[in-house]
Design a protein around this nucleic acid. Sequence first.
DNA 1: CATGGAATCTAACTAGAATTCGAAACCATG
DNA 2: CATGGTTTCGAATTCTAGTTAGATTCCATG
Lengths: 210, 210
Amino acid sequence: MAETTERRAAEAPTSKSARTRERILDAAAHVLSRKGYAGTRLADVAAHAQLQAPTIYYHFASRDELIEEVMWVGAARVHAHVVAELEALPAETSPLDRILTAVEAHLRYELLISDYTTASIRNANQVPEGLRAKAAAEEAAYARLWRDLFTAAMDAGQLRADLDITVTRMLLLGAMNWAAEWWNPRHRTLDDLVRATQDMVRYGMAPATA
Amino acid sequence: MAETTERRAAEAPTSKSARTRERILDAAAHVLSRKGYAGTRLADVAAHAQLQAPTIYYHFASRDELIEEVMWVGAARVHAHVVAELEALPAETSPLDRILTAVEAHLRYELLISDYTTASIRNANQVPEGLRAKAAAEEAAYARLWRDLFTAAMDAGQLRADLDITVTRMLLLGAMNWAAEWWNPRHRTLDDLVRATQDMVRYGMAPATA
DNA sequence: CATGGAATCTAACTAGAATTCGAAACCATG
DNA sequence: CATGGTTTCGAATTCTAGTTAGATTCCATG
């Protein structure tokens, strides 16, 4: 019953088998983010999941299928979380405020489940083509969400008229994705990071030119 | 003699041996950026450098030493290039303009030698500790350069007084580093990318509040 | 407490890749 | 054209890690 608070993120693992599967997936994300695609050894994954390597084959058909799922799950969960946060906003929320909400949701979720995030970020271009398909489709859909947010804000006149929204969108996502590489909760709170990122979007770095 | 124009970037390869060594290094950066640390096979590196795997051992003591050098070279060259561009500025250049110059220099060089850039970016946390030392030291020195640029601009009142310059600096570097992952010269010129990044620094995304 | 499916384990097979070694090819110099 | 150092190569060695097979343990159910 104490689990209910956890269920927002992942779906609830019911059977014992499902829970073991989830444990293997988490372990794989952990190893994948630190060792890369080629360096992800099933023996290491198994050790983190507290079982023996061959056991993985009871839950996944192959090493590649396991890794494919990690790559996909990371992207899918961030996407779903941002969508949920946006849908929770009042209908009259301005396009710019929707962007700022998306920024906060992306950062919080990315840094919360950072093993999956860093795993898919660092390995996006290292994993063999075949394994990329599902994750790539998910990322494309997520990119469309951001593109729509920017287009709406531009149409509403809330962005500088001469802004290159394609490039700017990628710069913003890059700044956020990179945070998983350096952010340390002992130096800055997540709240501070979110605020600094939102301020960067709104005001840039220079003071308002009087 | 036609080589002289190339010499701005890397030091001039004089002897035949030095040129082969450089070719191996380039090939290693290429493979490392695409396959990761564990996935970088010497046979692949050799194929890209148009020679056989054992030949690599004539130029490098081991696979790890080769990879260590790739990781280090990328960071060192970007650092050196940015320093050179900054030193070429007139003494009276304002701190904010110095930041904008550093942005341009970083982006141009990073995207010029993007195999090295993406190699070190994607593998920074995948390479074993021992190999990180040299590259990490170089990156630390480079980070200090940026910290000083920001501190000077803040002291000169050219940045918003409430700006968190530590976080903002990392967001900016992240946005730029990430560009190596998505920038495609067929969609946007490098000039456009540089301008968009500089505008983001100066103005943010929203129009000046009247 | 017996039983059968679910879940996990141990042992063995196999392929791939770094590294070593000694031979061959290259090439500037006398 | 010979010669010796430089550079490259082919073959053999060794170790690592994915995968499979078969046995064993766990555990809910009757």
